[in-house]
Design a protein around this nucleic acid. Sequence first.
DNA 1: TTGTACGCGTTATCAA
DNA 2: TTGATAACGCGTACAA
Lengths: 356, 356
Amino acid sequence: MAPARRTIHDVARAAHVHPSTVSRALNGGPGVTLRPETRARVLAAASRLAYRPSGVARSLRLRRTLTLGMLVPDIANPFFPRVIKGAEEAARERGYSLVLCDTADLPEREAEYLRVLREREVDGLLIASSRMADATIAALRAEGFPFVLVNRGARGSDDLAVLVDNEAGIAEAVAHLASLGHQRVAHLAGPQTTTTGLERAAGFRAAVRAHGLDPDPALVVEAGAFDEGAGLRAARAVLALERRPTAIVAANDLIAIGALRAAREAGLRVPHDLSLVGFNDIPDAELIEPPLTTVRVPQEEMGARAAALLVARLAGEAIAVPRIVLAARLVVRGSTARHPAERGATVPPARARRIA
Amino acid sequence: MAPARRTIHDVARAAHVHPSTVSRALNGGPGVTLRPETRARVLAAASRLAYRPSGVARSLRLRRTLTLGMLVPDIANPFFPRVIKGAEEAARERGYSLVLCDTADLPEREAEYLRVLREREVDGLLIASSRMADATIAALRAEGFPFVLVNRGARGSDDLAVLVDNEAGIAEAVAHLASLGHQRVAHLAGPQTTTTGLERAAGFRAAVRAHGLDPDPALVVEAGAFDEGAGLRAARAVLALERRPTAIVAANDLIAIGALRAAREAGLRVPHDLSLVGFNDIPDAELIEPPLTTVRVPQEEMGARAAALLVARLAGEAIAVPRIVLAARLVVRGSTARHPAERGATVPPARARRIA
DNA sequence: TTGTACGCGTTATCAA
DNA sequence: TTGATAACGCGTACAA
C-alpha cells in the first residue's frame, strides 16, 4: 500500500554510480573530491526520484539522532510554552528536533520518559522538571549523559544550567514593597523540595532582614505546588492571621493568582487593602485585573539559551560558563499600592502604566 | 569518554545465548516458545548490564519509529498547550513520542518541518497548523502518508480530522446575545484563508439571519490573524462605525481580548456598553476582567482524540468516523450583558457564576 | 527450543 | 575520482 521508500540505492542506480558516491554527492563535506559532472548527475537523479534520506539509518550509522528530549512538569502551566518555544527554535536553528514530554510533575512519569528518551537515543536532555529527584540527575551526571537544567538548581554541582537570579528578583520585589511603606509582608513560598522554591524563600527572608521588616515566621507559608490552587490555600492561611500582612510576595504568578482569589474571598481589595507581587511574568499577568506586579523571567530566552548550551556541549565545544544566570527584573503594574497607613503621603501612586 | 552502549550482543554473551535469543526473550510475542530458564537467564543478564535496546536500530529494522510529529502555529498561543498536552498524553499511553514543531504560522517553516519530520520518519502527523497550504496537505494525502487535521477543515475531502462544531458554537453565542435584546451584533472574523475563520463567519451570518438581527455587512470585519493585535485593529474598525454595534462575537478569545482593549480605548465599558463573546475558552478567559463569555472548545480532548485517531490509523484499524466533530458550548461569564435599550426589563442579569 | 544468516539504509574506510 | 566493503544494533525466516 504505502509505496516503498526510495533508498540511496535507487538514486545510485538512476545516476549510474555506486551508493557511496551518492552519499558523498549529497553530504559532500570539505574533504570530499567529486567530479562536478558526477555530482550533478546524482543530484538530478535524487531530485527526480524525490529521494529523502533515512534519518533512522543515518542515526544508526552516525550514532546520533539530532534529537533533544525536553521534560517539563506541565505544558498547561503558562510559564512553560514560551520556554519551550525558545528551546524549540534554538534547537531547530541548529538542526535538532525536540521531543516534548509532559511529566505532570509525577516521578514515575519522569522515570518512564527518561527511559523512553534514552531508548530513543536522544542526544541530550533539557530538564525543566523542577521536582525531578536529585538521584535521577546524579545518575545522568555519573553516566556522562549530556543535559541542561532549566530553571532549576544544580545543588552545588557544576551541571550545565540556565537559571534566573531568584534572590535578586525577590529582593527587588521586597524593596519595592518596603519603599511603599509596607512592614508586614508575607511570602507564599513554593514547594521547599524545589531549588526555585528554596531560593525564593531564602531571598525573601534575606530581603526582609535587609529592610528591617517584620521577620515574623508565620508570614512565610509554603504552597504545596506552584499553582493557583495551592496559592489559594496558602493565601487563606496567611490572611487568617491575627495580624494580617499588608502585602504578599508570591513564589510565582500562579500562586499570586490564587492569592488574588483568596483576597476576594476575604473581601479585601487588591491593591487597596493588600498589595501583591508575583514571579515569572506569565502572559496572564498583565491580563488579569488588577494587572499583576511581578518579577519578569525572560522565558523564551531561557529556553533558547538552554538549547544552545546543550547543543554546544554536544558539539564538544568548550563551555566557558556552565551556569547561565538570567536577570530577573521587577515589572510594576496595577496590583501593588502604597501601604494603607501611608496613603496620602508623598510617594506617588504605584499603579503604573502597562509595560510593553 | 562516553561508555560504549550495551548491545544485544553483550547481553547474549553474558547469558550464554545467541543474540536472537535475547531478542526473543525480551520482546517475546505470542508465537514465541522459550524455555523459562533461558528467558530468566537473559532477563537477569539484561538487567545486570542495564541493557537498553536501541530504538534507532529497532526502528530501522521494523520500519517504524513510534514517533508522531505535531505541527502547531504558535505554542505561545494559549489555545495550543492543552491541545498539545492531550495529544502528548494519548500518544504516550500508546507508546508513541511526540516531536513538537512550532511553525510560527510561516509557510516556509512548515515546509522545512515537514521535510525534517519525513526524514526522521515519524509514523504520522498531527496538523494543527491552520494556514498550511492545501496543496501541501493534498500532497500528503496523495502519498498516503498518515495524518490527522486538528481544528482545521478538510475541504470536502475525507481526511481524518478532529474539529469543533463552529457553526453551532457561534449560533449559541448569537442566540445568547439575541435573547438579551441585541440587534446590531458585529463579528470579528478570523482570517478567511482558514477553514476555522470561514466556518465561524458563515455560522455568524446564518445565525444573524435566523434571529432576524441587523444583517449589515459592515458589521463583519476580518481580523488578519487569530491574535490580540489583529483583534484590536478589527475592533477599532467596528467601533468606529457610525451606528456602533452593541455586541461583538469574536472568532476566538485572543481577538476578543483585543476587542476588549479597543473598547477601553473608546471609553466603552464591557459589558455595560458593549457585550463581548469569544471562542475557545482559553484559560485566560476566566481570568481577565470582566471574565470572558466564550464558546468552549474541549482542548485536551481535541488533542487526545486526534492522537488516538492517528494511532488507530497507523495500527490499520478500521476508522468508523474519519471526522470527529466535538461539541462547542457557550460558557456565560461576566462580559455579556443585556442590550442597553432593554436594561431594567425582565431578563435577569447575565453576569453568571464562574463555570467549573 | 535455539542458532544461523540476512537485511533494514547509511556512511567511513580502504582499495582501485 | 570512484567503487567495494563493512559496520551501526536489531528482528525474523529458516535451519538445526
